[in-house]
Nucleic acid binder design. Structure first.
Lengths: 242, 242
DNA sequence: AACCGTCTGTGCGCTAGACCACAGACGTGC
DNA sequence: GCACGTCTGTGGTCTAGCGCACAGACGGTT
């Protein structure tokens, strides 16, 4: 199945799309396209970042890996956000990893340029901070969801959040990888995905998940999904697109 | 047991303590002392905030309450931070609640004043953003911990984080309340606390927890505590105090 | 001193999910 | 078309933690 991956269109990223034409034109020469492969590590635990990345078609997971090797995701970033918030928040590094969860394109911007723009305090700063707040909500809700909800509900949440950040109904993702994201066993994903498949919500074949019935998924998912989605819509949805 | 609660000393808050004398003097007339009672709600889900609060001796929990009434904490703020980050992040409101977890004092600052100061882009902005990044780490680690660690380890983490933000070894806290914070049953806290007590790490009598052996606690806790503590130290610890 | 409300301890059955061990199923490459 | 590696399904055992029910223990009030 050929997937068309054209040159990165920076304005497919919603933060960049929300910039005024002037701001965007000024930034454009500094934006360089990059292509992310599945599983690629964008940054490591505590690693210094030279660039921030604005995904256009890729999705990047933020996750933490324990000393014993188990891991869990705290949030994910797609074309609605930016990877590397530590660069404008001031800390420089974050104590987690960022891994490409869905292959695709992004544009990158040099740290120093970003910081200069941020320091100007204009629209760009406004956007980056609003996105960060939305991300905080996502992480928070992940915390709550991890505590209180079933694997099946969490799988639903995760699939829906990913689906929202893709322009296709098919995710390239093994159960093994999903298990690593959700912080559960692979077999746990198998049974949860099995139930969703029986219900006709998804189809699942060797690393290719297809969302068949979003309606059904939204009925199964816990309230956490709505909270996150509403907050993203509130903070970033009403942005003038271009 | 009488607890001395003097007038709030703004500089007991580490963010305010890190301001230059000039900045601080300018802000001081705008800072008003407040006193928080245990269980008091600082802000509600989605509620508008008129002030931000800099705790000096109080501790405030950020938590989410489900539609079915169960709840879980995402993070807590003491004299090392500020309650109300949505006011400078741009969203105005957050989809969670903030509840006083340990009674004490704070100083408040009017939203508009905060926003003006923040917009100046100076030291105050720098501090607020660094704190926000530290908070993100705390929330992230809560997410991971909720997924992967035992109630006993989480109780340890929670007690240590609280202890770090108090200048006493005694916490006023029923198991019921702790259960609400951790998102577990009250009985679960009873057995976990029982084990810690048997180990001589704490003593526990009707809402009065005493930390007896911090060493012991730090041996029991999961790595999540260290990650959060190190990150707070890194981002805020080296700040010039006054 | 008696009372009552709150807080804590415990016991029991139940379930979700972990851990472990395989078996099949698909698909790519030779 | 065969072989091998990867991905997925399933079954059995084990445990942490839930839900529920209740008993004791403490402490403030009258």
């Amino acid at each position: 199945m050929p997937v068309f991956v054209g040159p990165a269109q920076p304005r497919e990223n919603r933060l960049l799309a929300a910039l005024s034409n002037d701001d965007y034109e000024r930034l454009l020469p500094q934006l360089a396209p990059v292509s992310f492969a599945l599983g690629e590590v964008v940054y490591e635990f505590g690693g210094q970042l030279d660039y921030v990345y604005f995904p256009t078609t890729a999705i990047v997971s933020l996750l933490y890996t324990m000393e014993n090797g188990s891991s869990a995701e705290m949030g994910l970033t797609g074309n609605d956000g930016v990877v590397g918030i530590a660069l404008f928040m001031g800390g420089g590094t974050m104590p987690n990893r960022a891994v490409v969860q869905s292959a695709g394109a992004a544009v990158k911007l040099k740290a120093s340029v970003l910081q200069d723009e941020f320091a100007k305090g204009g629209k760009f700063q406004y956007l980056l901070l609003r996105y960060t707040q939305a991300l905080i909500t996502q992480i928070s809700q992940t915390a709550v969801c991890n505590r209180l909800h079933s694997v099946e509900q969490q799988l639903c949440r995760w699939l829906l959040l990913s689906h929202d950040r893709l322009n296709t109904d098919e995710l390239i993702m093994t159960q093994e990888l999903i298990a690593g994201m959700l912080g559960v066993r692979r077999e746990g994903v198998t049974v949860a995905a099995g139930r969703l498949q029986d219900a006709g919500a998804i189809s699942y074949v060797r690393g290719h998940i297809k969302i068949l019935d979003r309606q059904r998924m939204e009925e199964t998912v816990c309230e956490c999904y709505r909270v996150v989605k509403d907050e993203f819509d509130r903070l970033l949805g009403a942005l003038p697109q271009k």
